[in-house]
């Protein structure tokens, strides 16, 4: 029996699908291939939907931006009768994935790092304890297997420019029980998630004022500042700057971790950086296990030097 896969790709802007969505489509395509089924994609109508077609969707289900997501996804799942549903990572994981599974008498696993195909079924391996360990889950019900991926768990498929496909528009009823009174103001300016360089600081900065060094180095390198949760909790940095399991997921070319121990919950937000630089006084700090480049030393001595050299090079650049 062929098993069809529906990818729920809601992470998108006016420019098209976000990385979280294209990774989910990649993982969905791989699963559909392995299970001999079709790949369906649900995406917001417009640029994102055309992009989904170019990424290989057999059919694209669309919805108007602002439509209620749970009923839209439920309808797409039913129309496509997909046995496997890959929901892109993001807010929708906590908000929709489990409810969808409950509604359709299935099961749900979030934070999936790997999917194992067994016959015509799957098992999902998920990051647990903030990424310190993994659990392999099996689904016990007949209903859909709903999964949401950990960052980097899917590879975006190659784009076939100009490819089109059948489009089915979904008009679902809203949920009157929850009303948005004041929407989030779309953050202005560049986003941490998209930055090519992220410079983060942790408790090793010793004092809130020293977070200024992090901002300055980030500025000098044309990047953005980030933080461990410890110093967000201490009020040294803003919640929007937190990197990690419960903060931002960043995928820069280079990630600086200054005075950060490297707890798995922090690494969950940055381990997909192309290069990780650790600066820590403790040579045995866990961060050095993840880092590609390391300096054992005091970040309060190194950051001013890095700022100076970076500025010099930018000026002579």
């Amino acid at each position: 029996m062929a098993t069809d896969v529906l990818v729920v790709a809601t992470e998108a802007s006016n420019d098209g699908l976000a990385r979280a969505a294209t990774e989910a489509i990649g993982a969905g395509a791989r699963l559909a291939g392995a299970l001999g089924g079709e790949l369906w994609v649900l995406a917001p109508a417009g640029v994102a939907a055309s992009e989904a077609a170019e990424l290989g969707a057999g059919r694209v289900y669309t919805y108007a931006p602002g439509a209620e997501v749970l009923s839209t996804v439920t309808e797409a799942a039913q129309l496509s009768s997909s046995r496997i549903i890959v929901v892109n990572r993001g807010a929708i994981g906590l908000d929709v994935a489990a409810r969808l599974a409950a509604r359709l008498s299935g099961g749900c696993v979030l934070g999936v790092t790997d999917v194992i195909v067994q016959g015509d079924d799957i098992e999902a391996i998920a990051a647990i304890y903030g990424g310190a360990a993994r659990a392999q889950f099996r689904f016990v019900n007949a209903g859909p297997r709903v999964i949401s991926l950990a960052p980097g768990a899917g590879e975006p498929p190659a784009r076939q420019q100009g490819r089109t496909t059948e489009v089915v528009h979904i008009e679902a009823a809203g949920d009157a029980r929850v009303r948005v009174m004041e929407p989030a103001k779309a953050a202005e300016g560049p986003r941490l998630e998209d930055a090519a360089v992220v410079v983060s600081g942790g408790r090793g900065l010793r004092d809130g004022e020293n977070y200024g060094l992090i901002r300055e180095l980030a500025g000098a390198l044309g990047g953005m500042p980030g933080a461990s949760r410890a110093i967000v909790d201490d009020g040294w940095a803003k919640p929007a700057e937190q990197v990690g399991l419960t903060g931002k997921i960043v995928t820069p070319d280079v990630y600086f971790a200054a005075g950060i121990s490297g707890a798995s919950q922090h690494m969950a937000g940055c381990s997909n950086a192309r290069a990780i630089v650790a600066i820590n006084t403790d040579a045995t700090a866990p961060i050095f296990r993840y880092a590609h480049f390391g300096i054992v030393g005091d970040c309060l001595e190194l950051l001013p030097e890095l700022i100076r050299v970076a500025k010099e090079r930018a000026a002579s650049g």
Partner: peptide
């Protein structure tokens, strides 16, 4: 029920960190 754990395990963290040395912070 909906899901069941088959097994748990600890992933390898493969580290190969190039240490940057030098006499001064600069």
């Amino acid at each position: 029920g909906g899901v069941e754990v088959v097994r748990v395990f600890v992933p390898d963290v493969q580290g190969h960190c190039e240490m940057i040395e030098g006499d001064t912070p600069a």
